[in-house]
Write a protein that binds this DNA or RNA. Structure first.
Length: 609
DNA sequence: AGCACGCCGACT
DNA sequence: GTCGGCGTGCTC
């Protein structure tokens, strides 16, 4: 009698282990590692679906085994490498394997499964033991430099791997970048080797793509963050565009991110890693600093930059430049940090917008008629520093600016874009685009002028990663500038202004990382956050962890969240301890709500400080 | 997640 | 006496 070990794609801690079932002789031929099977479970009427993760001759389970009911897919749908990766990430993130399996394997589409036939019998290429090369690439800043684009560079690396029988996985943050990558892939000679893994595709398309990626064929598998878990035969390299982008972070438990999963996978499968970004994430910068990543730079021309120290969002000079460029029928981009019609207050006496003394964010009058910072919520006196106490409210959001500029430039075509709209491309003419960071449409030939109208706001936010994020948003927008284009930053002063003038984002982030390091802040440490709706449970958790892990430093605390910094070296121990405490305390909790977890554990919180 | 088991209050 | 509330615990 043969025995199959089964795991379930379930977020329940009780189900987070392998269950043994006997394999009826009628199914013996069809059941192997990675099979999707239905099994009876408990007293439930309908069978549960699970993955076969081991075939054994006997079980250590004391009682009699139940039988596998049926096999749901002809193919093996979970590879050994995927399962090992899920286990490693679950451990690292103090989460459960079951939570990750549904990322690694999409939902079954019966129709697509029946229609699928492997293109070719998977040719068995023995995996060569290669030493993984790990690099960070700074591509050319300007998109017009075609051979220095990230897509061109990635395609070249992919092509080299494919030529030697190795697959690659390419991950991009969102649909905009994916669209750019896809157009390059599909117009290349490798188009029939490219498979998209995207959560936005239909069920049948996703299953079809998954089966193909599992088939053993040598492929370029590309997609958004989930693709880092995709099946891939003889994986040669994982290529990641812009690893610092927020979209690379999973927003639900166990809060993994593309970068860390890729690094883990690279260790497990000894495949190469290539990160690329116009401005590095703090983590990548640190990995370069310690020599873990080799830094490769594609030297590139940089646009001329002007710094405007005006308090106005758009000063006279900028205004007339915009006007001039629009009337010569060339496109202009204005990057704004806030969406919509957010309001601010300007003092009637000194005419300046009142700003928070800590973070420089514009103040507003809250519903209780108190002057308050939007970002850190501090209250301020109703009196301006100049002594004035009368205000006029003004609108500062992107929509408000769009309205205002539509009136100022009635001749021009004024477009507003944000994460909510899906404008990825505009025609090259006298168009004025007002965009929130990251939503800038591309235009062939590039923008003739880019204005970063809220640069002061972006770096002034009282967040650890404000500067790093701002650099990334600026650099990605700058990449859309024309050969003859120029950029204007509003409100930057001091040392930073010098670096900005030369678009030296690498140096800015590098310095930021060094400063953070002196304070013991990430990326030289990691941040753990625990959220719970129960104050009692959170308090016990905090006390318990403080006692069990005395090295950890409390860095943030609110009514629902506690956050600690811990050393990178203690990561495994920390995750294990947190994991154990969370499951013990959840079981003992008096505040359990049906189907709701007591603690949300994030081993790498990038927002809480 | 389901589902059964089990131990206290209100009912024909 | 028994019906049924949902807290507790198990499912190979």
């Amino acid at each position: 009698m043969r025995v199959a070990s089964i795991v379930f794609a379930s977020p329940l801690p009780q189900l987070s282990k392998e269950f043994d079932y006997s394999i009826p002789s009628s199914l013996e031929e069809k059941v192997s590692f990675g099979s999707l099977v239905a099994v009876p479970f408990g007293t439930a009427k309908k069978p549960k679906t699970g993955f076969v993760v081991a075939i054994k001759n006997e079980s250590s389970f004391a009682k009699e085994l139940a039988e596998v009911s049926s096999v749901l897919s002809e193919s093996s749908v979970l590879t050994i490498e995927q399962y090992e990766l899920c286990k490693a990430i679950a451990k690292r993130q103090a989460g459960l394997v079951g939570e990750l399996l549904s990322t690694a394997v999409p939902k079954l589409s019966v129709r697509a499964d029946k229609a699928f036939s492997a293109v070719q019998p998977p040719e068995k290429i023995p995996k060569q033991v290669n030493t993984a090369r790990r690099t960070f690439i700074t591509p050319g800043l300007l998109d017009v430099e075609e051979e220095k684009r990230w897509t061109t560079i990635f395609l070249k690396i992919a092509s080299a791997n494919l030529a030697e029988g190795r697959s690659v996985i390419i991950v991009a943050p969102d649909f905009r970048d994916l669209e750019v990558l896809e157009s390059v892939l599909t117009s290349s000679s490798l188009s029939d080797k490219a498979v998209r893994i995207s959560s936005e595709d239909s069920l049948t398309d996703r299953w079809k793509a998954h089966l193909r990626a599992s088939s053993g064929e040598t492929l370029i598998t590309y997609g958004t963050r989930g693709a880092v878990f995709a099946p891939s035969s003889n994986l040669g390299a994982i290529l990641i565009w812009d690893d610092g982008d927020d979209s690379h972070f999973e927003q639900g438990a166990p809060y993994w991110n593309t970068r860390d999963v890729a690094l883990t996978r690279s260790e497990l499968e000894s495949c190469d890693i290539v990160f690329a970004a116009h401005s590095p994430s703090a983590e990548a910068s640190r990995l370069i600093e310690i020599g873990y990543l080799q830094h490769e730079v594609f030297e590139s021309s940089k646009p001329p930059v002007r710094i405007s120290v005006s308090n106005e969002r758009l000063d006279e000079e900028t205004y007339s430049l915009i006007s001039k460029i629009l009337s010569s029928d060339k496109p202009v981009l204005i990057q704004v940090s806030n969406l919509g019609y957010a309001s601010a207050i300007a003092c009637l006496k000194c005419k300046e917008i009142r700003r928070c003394q800590d973070c420089n964010t514009a103040l507003w009058i809250d519903p209780n008629k108190v002057a308050r910072c939007r970002s850190c919520k501090n209250q301020f006196s109703s009196q301006c520093e100049c002594g004035g106490s009368n205000y006029r409210s003004i609108s500062v959001g992107s929509q408000a600016l769009t309205d205002q500029l539509s009136r100022s430039f009635p001749e021009a075509n004024v477009i507003h874009t944000s994460g909510l709209e899906r404008i990825t491309r505009i025609e090259r003419k006298g168009t004025l685009v007002i965009s929130t960071p990251g939503a800038e449409p591309s235009v062939s030939g590039g923008y003739e002028l880019i204005v970063f109208s809220d640069s002061l706001n972006m770096i002034g936010m009282p967040r650890l990663r404000a500067l790093e994020n701002a650099c990334s948003k600026w650099a990605n927008a700058l990449a859309k500038i024309s050969k003859t284009g120029r950029a204007i930053y509003v409100g930057i002063t001091g040392d930073l202004a010098d670096q900005i003038r030369s678009s030296n984002f690498h140096e800015i982030v590098h310095r930021d990382v060094l400063e953070r390091g002196e304070l013991g802040l990430p990326p030289s440490t990691r941040t753990l956050s625990i959220t719970s709706s129960s104050r009692d449970d959170l308090k016990i958790m905090k006390e318990q962890l403080t006692e069990l892990l005395p090295e950890m430093r409390l860095v943030a605390e609110t009514a629902t969240t506690v956050a600690f910094n811990y050393s990178i070296a203690s990561g495994a121990e920390t995750a294990a301890t947190v994991s154990r405490s969370a499951s013990d305390l959840s079981r003992a909790s008096k505040h359990k709500k049906p189907g709701q977890r007591v603690f949300f554990v994030n081993m790498d919180d990038n927002k809480v400080i």
